[in-house]
Each structure stands twice: as structure tokens, then as C-alpha cells.
């Protein structure tokens, strides 16, 4: 299996704000992919709560995933939010449960998502001058291994790149999970672990080797590190009980490559497979199978 790639990169010198043009194009691709993904996963349901172009002065997405899992009799619903303020450049990202979402005035109408993991920063560049934008949508509808990733880079610094949207099956549980990177490489993910039961949040990926120096290694599968209940001290009691966290795992087309935190690096493995790096968190997506 390999990703279906669509290059949305723009030179940025033909007028207007190139970020908006690219986000609009990505939204179209997302809707097409989502319709197909929903059709082949009828017990789960992805939906777009807010999309680019719906709110003046802001862009981004609020995405909801309803899972085929019940909690207290109700379907579990996850949500991710990636919203840029086009006036101030403020960027708000969050992943969590839908129960933490307050629709309405916050973020110009995108609403407020709380209770999960997220970041705020002002790292998106919105200059009126021409500014190129690298942008790729990588997606797959392979059954059980579905994902949609939209990645942008405003320049090659690691603080102006993001995987704006990453909707993927947790291939361990078979349920959707949602994640993002902000424009500085901070990660966020929310998934549902059937064994607990409960939501699990993550802000990091289980990485073999942190350094960008050799040995350079493309490793699979990609697994999130769960955020475990914090231990502030040995007192007070009661403490969080012993717990087990089932893995949350990205589809087989995705890997980690520790060469660089920069977007759109390209790697050819010893088995002939070819990989494109997405965003600032070292995720890579397979774009070509090996010859052998």
C-alpha cells in the first residue's frame, strides 16, 4: 500500500492569501476522502464541524469522529481542532472528547475545545507579500489502514510547518483517532482505548532514536506514547491504580525517520520503498512500494 498524494504547493505570488487557497483545496479533498471513508466504515462516522471559509478572519478545521464504541450507553466521540486567526496569526490546536467542545463565539465561531491536549502559538506567517507554501495531502482508503494527512510548510524552519489534519485508524483498535502537529512540531492525539475503557491522550510518538544524527533509521510501526496519570507525590492517597494502556498505532503507510524535523524530506529505503516526510514531527508516508 502507498499513499495517494496530491501536491497543493503554491508559489504564492498570484494575489490573495495563499494559505486560504490551499486550505480550501485541502478541504475539498478531505470531504471527498471522508465520504468514501464513512461509506466503508458505516459503524463509525467522521464529520467536519467547522471548515475553512466558514468563519471570516479565521481558517482551519474542527473535526469529529464518532466511534463504534459505547461509553455509558453513548457513542464515543473524539474531536480535533486546528484554527488560525488570520488577523493576529494566533494558532490554536486541540484534541479531546466532543464533551469538551463549546460551540459558539470562541475563535471567531470555531468554538472552544478543552479538556484534551493542545497548544496555542502565533507561529503562522500571514504576510501580505508573496510567500510560497509547500502543501501535500496524503491519504489512503485501504480497509483498516485508512488515513488522511494534510501537511504544510511555509518555509523550511521547523516552526512554520504542520500536519494540520491527521485522521487515521488506530490499527490496534480499528477505531478512528485524531491528531495534529502545530507549527512548531508539538504533537497532540486523542484515541479511545477499549480495554480501559477511556480516552487516551498523547503528545509524543514512541521514537527509537531522538537525535537527527546517525544512525538514521526509518522505523515502523508508529505508536503514540500515552499520557499516564501524573504522580505529583507519594501522598495524598488514593493514588491512581495500576493500569494497562493498549497501544494506539498509525497505519502501515506511516513511519518515523529521524533525519530531520523538516517537511518534505525524501527517503529511499534499502528495500526500494520511497517515503515523503510530512510536517515537523518526523512522520513519513510511503509513496512508493519497493521493487522487490
Amino acid at each position: 500500500m502507498v499513499a495517494t498524494l496530491v501536491d497543493l504547493s503554491r508559489r504564492g505570488d498570484t494575489g490573495g492569501l495563499v494559505v486560504l487557497q490551499v486550505f480550501a483545496a485541502a478541504d475539498g479533498l478531505l470531504r471527498t476522502w471522508m465520504a468514501a471513508a464513512n461509506a466503508q466504515n458505516p459503524l463509525q462516522q467522521l464529520s467536519i464541524v467547522k471548515a475553512p471559509g466558514e468563519v471570516l478572519g479565521f481558517t482551519g478545521w474542527v473535526i469529529k469522529a464518532r466511534l463504534a464504541v459505547l461509553d455509558a450507553g453513548q457513542p464515543v466521540e473524539l474531536m480535533s481542532q486546528w484554527v488560525a486567526n488570520l488577523t493576529t496569526g494566533a494558532l490554536t490546536t486541540h484534541c479531546g472528547l466532543v464533551s469538551g467542545y463549546t460551540p459558539g463565539a470562541a475563535l471567531g465561531g470555531y468554538g472552544a475545545l478543552t479538556g484534551g491536549v493542545g497548544t496555542t502559538s502565533s507561529l503562522i506567517t500571514l504576510l501580505p507579500q508573496p510567500l510560497p507554501l509547500g502543501a501535500v495531502v496524503a491519504s489512503s482508503l485501504a480497509v483498516g489502514q485508512e488515513y488522511f494527512a494534510f501537511s504544510i510548510t511555509q518555509h523550511t524552519f521547523t516552526n512554520r510547518q504542520a500536519v494540520v489534519v491527521l485522521i487515521a485508524k488506530d490499527v490496534y483498535s480499528g477505531q478512528w483517532h485524531l491528531s495534529f502537529t502545530d507549527m512548531a512540531g508539538a504533537l497532540g492525539a486523542v484515541a479511545w482505548i477499549a480495554n480501559r475503557p477511556g480516552a487516551v491522550l498523547s503528545t509524543s510518538i514512541r521514537l527509537d532514536y531522538f537525535s537527527s544524527a546517525t544512525p538514521l533509521m526509518l522505523t515502523q510501526p508508529v505508536q503514540w506514547n500515552p499520557i499516564t496519570p501524573g504522580i505529583a507525590s507519594q501522598a495524598p492517597q488514593p493514588q491512581p491504580p495500576v493500569q494497562w494502556f493498549d497501544p494506539v498505532v498509525l497505519p502501515a503507510d506511516l513511519a518515523l525517520y529521524n533525519r530531520t524535523f523538516g517537511s518534505f524530506g525524501y527517503f529511499i529505503g534499502g528495500d526500494g520503498t520511497q517515503w515523503l516526510q510530512l510536517g515537523p514531527a518526523r512522520l513519513a508516508v510511503k509513496v512508493k512500494d519497493g521493487g522487490a
Binding site: 527509537d208 546517525t214 510501526p221 505508536q223 496519570p229 494502556f245 497501544p247 534499502g270
Partner: peptide, 24 residues
């Protein structure tokens, strides 16, 4: 031990595709 310990298994890791001696 009843508390303060979390078991987080890994899925079996796959083979590694090794990069070049120096990149790029």
C-alpha cells in the same frame, strides 16, 4: 503494588530501514 504504575505494551516493532552514512 496497587497503584502508580502503568503498563504500556508496544506492538511488535518492524524491521528498520537504515538511512545513509550521512544525510542528505
Amino acid at each position: 503494588i496497587p497503584d502508580r504504575l502503568y503498563f504500556c505494551p508496544a506492538v511488535p516493532p518492524g524491521p528498520v530501514l537504515m538511512g545513509p552514512v550521512l544525510g542528505p
